[in-house]
């Protein structure tokens, strides 16, 4: 993620109290109750977290709700942050966990509605149906991609988002997922196989591949 330059510009542009302090220094100050440090951390990581969540849920409104929850949770539990990993990693982990929680809740809710409707709501089989105005703007590739992505299980979807869309390094992914680099590589490989298996028929439909 090439967010370093953007982060610095955001910090200076918003007139933050501590634009030059490192994450560790800001976390230390925030633990002592310095709200300016919290604000600096929020402004620094708002957009990166939003990008990840947006890619995962595919909807800006839902993504903002989740991002807000991510920062609330992180700042409330900042005293539990042991600094064994980077703050950004810790934040991304919270974000992914909340995305997973939301996906589960959505699935449960959809199943409940389907059951009540006697399994006649076919459109609800897609957890994140594209909004009508977005459909107009999206081309066929985009639609096929997100349709396939939404059909994936949450753990596979997160890996595709992190590696193939956000282009995260394997090392950072390993930190976020609390596993080894080799383990992450294996999981990404499996996620890609699953993703391609879903994507291929969709691309065939639109004539992208033979």
């Amino acid at each position: 993620m090439n967010r370093a330059g953007t982060v610095a510009m955001d910090d200076f542009a918003s007139g933050l109290a501590y634009p030059t302090l490192s994450d560790e220094q800001l976390v230390a100050r925030a633990k002592e109750g310095d709200t300016d440090a919290l604000e600096t951390l929020f402004v620094r990581y708002r957009q990166p977290v939003f990008r990840l969540v947006y890619r995962s849920v595919g909807n800006a409104d839902d993504a903002e709700d989740i991002v807000q929850e991510v920062f609330l949770k992180a700042f409330e539990r900042l005293h539990t942050f042991r600094e064994q990993s980077r703050f950004s990693t810790w934040l991304m982990r919270i974000a992914l966990n909340l995305c997973t929680d939301r996906a589960r809740a959505q699935k449960r809710h959809a199943e409940l509605l389907q059951r009540e409707a006697g399994y006649k709501l076919a459109w609800m089989t897609h957890p994140n149906p594209p909004e009508p105005e977005e459909v107009v703007q999206q081309n066929a590739f985009h639609e096929a991609f997100y349709t396939a992505l939404n059909r994936l299980p949450e753990h596979h979807r997160q890996l595709i988002v992190m590696r193939d869309l956000e282009e995260m390094e394997y090392e950072q992914m390993a930190e976020i997922l609390n596993t080894t680099v080799g383990g992450v590589k294996l999981r990404v490989m499996r996620a890609r196989r699953a993703f391609k298996a879903v994507l291929e028929p969709l691309l065939r439909q639109i004539g992208e591949i033979e």
Partner: peptide, 23 residues
């Protein structure tokens, strides 16, 4: 396909610090 999806702009996060601080 990945390149195309990656090139699409991600909307800017509209969350404000004031909302977080209030919450």
């Amino acid at each position: 396909l990945l390149r195309q999806v990656r090139s699409e702009p991600v909307p800017a996060c509209q969350l404000r610090w004031e909302a977080i601080a209030l919450r």
